[in-house]
């Protein structure tokens, strides 16, 4: 008896399954044809890349004050920051975009996206919201070195100049201190 039941079961369940697959043959499909459809605009609300998506980072060097909180928060150490102190009587009188005075020149701000794991800890740690995730995800390159992004806008000459200014100031201060000491 179970022999017959097994056979009827076998055919019955197969037929049920085939009924469902036939139904799906005519149901709408869900494929998103990625490079043809723009993933940012021409896509249904479900598949759209949300604004919160943690993709490539973008730094606004005008806001960043060079505090290195982000580099310290990064678990894989892929942010490299180099800063030069702004001397008191800098000829440029730099300000940040929120109007406050800039204390540190951002000589180097590199993020290596080949190492970045897009965890978002750096953006969370940033006190000024200078560093943010964008939704740009398609930026692959042929050379892995191209994934090292330089965000600092300063030219090497400018950096050298600022470094020299700082060194001069330090020297001047040291000289002044020495002078003050000898006076005493």
């Amino acid at each position: 008896m179970s022999y017959i039941k097994n056979i009827t079961d076998g055919f019955g369940t197969a037929a049920t399954g085939m009924k469902f697959t036939l139904k799906h043959l005519f149901s709408p499909n869900v494929t998103v044809q990625y490079p043809n459809t723009n993933p940012y605009t021409e896509i249904s609300a479900v598949d759209k890349i949300p604004d919160r998506a943690r993709n490539r980072l973008l730094l606004d060097p005008d806001i960043c004050n060079g505090c290195t909180s982000c580099a310290r928060a990064c678990p894989v150490d892929c942010i490299e920051i180099d800063t030069v102190k702004v001397i008191a009587n800098d000829p440029d009188q730099p300000t940040l975009s929120d109007g406050t005075k800039r204390r540190l020149w951002l000589a180097k701000y590199d993020i290596n996206f080949a190492q970045c794991c897009f965890c978002g800890l750096c953006a969370a740690a940033c006190p000024t919201e200078a560093l943010k995730h964008t939704t740009v995800f398609d930026y692959c390159t042929y050379d892995v070195n191209d994934l090292l992004y330089h965000f600092s806008t300063m030219t090497p000459e400018q950096i050298a100049e600022k470094k020299k200014l700082l060194a001069d100031e330090v020297k001047a201060k040291a000289a002044a201190a020495a002078a003050a000491k000898s006076e005493n």
């Binding site: 697959t21 149901s27 499909n29 869900v30 494929t31 044809q33």
Partner: peptide, 11 residues
Amino acid sequence: SAFMQDKLGPM
């Protein structure tokens, strides 16, 4: 097979 699986197949 693609239509049965709710996708588009080769396009």
